[in-house]
Amino acid sequence: MSDKVNLTIDGRKLEAPAGSTILQAAKDANIYIPHLCHNDELKPYGACRLCVVEITHRNRTRIVASCIYEVAEGLEVQTVTERVLNVRKLVIELLLSRNKKSQVLQDIAQKLEVEKSRFELDIKGCILCGMCIRTCKEVVGVNAIGYKSRGFTREVATPFDETPPDCIACGSCAYVCPVDFIQYSEKNGVRTIWNTEFPMQKCTKCGRHIAPVKQLDHFKETLNLPEDHFDICLHCR
């Protein structure tokens, strides 16, 4: 088998590396597919279901999630069909029912011409896309947060809903959260995230706060940096 495969997306003939996903191929060809739980730095996951497309195989069509469906030779993909839009509309309505205030979700809803969610739920706002958990595990390499429980009661949580022992307060989870559900604040040299206060390191020269001590310790440990590497902030170097 060769390393490249040929496929068609919305009638355009494209070439994509074998083993990549439809979403990747579409992105490379500047074809828009809405998505929330995908990030190039993370392994494909397929949680939000917004990226559904219709594929044709032996004269039959099927709805698949493009972010986890691998490209194949001769694959025919339609990103905008009635069936696809119907599914996406339902998905965005369900997502909105979990977080109706999110601007990102509202923008996608507007594009899909969905005005209001038919489902009224009083859920805190997490859409359970798992971006935070996967980033913490795959990118940061810390694994401080995870899912808790399952089904309707599933949520992202720290172990035992208490101070996360492994957390380095880097804020990556808040950064990747597509609906800004995870928040952190900084005040008087203390970063507060996951209901925990993390003291921050002060620059020995200018006295500005650089980053949480635990985060800098983590960098020093993983990158084998000298103990005083972060004593002076970027501005003073």
Binding site: V142, N143, A144, I145, G146, Y147, K148, S149, R150, A157, T158, P159, F160, P164, P165, D166
Partner: peptide, 12 residues
């Protein structure tokens, strides 16, 4: 195994 993962499985 990280405690968050153990907690995840134990609550699942």
């Amino acid at each position: 195994v990280s405690i968050s993962q153990v907690f995840e499985v134990a609550t699942f």
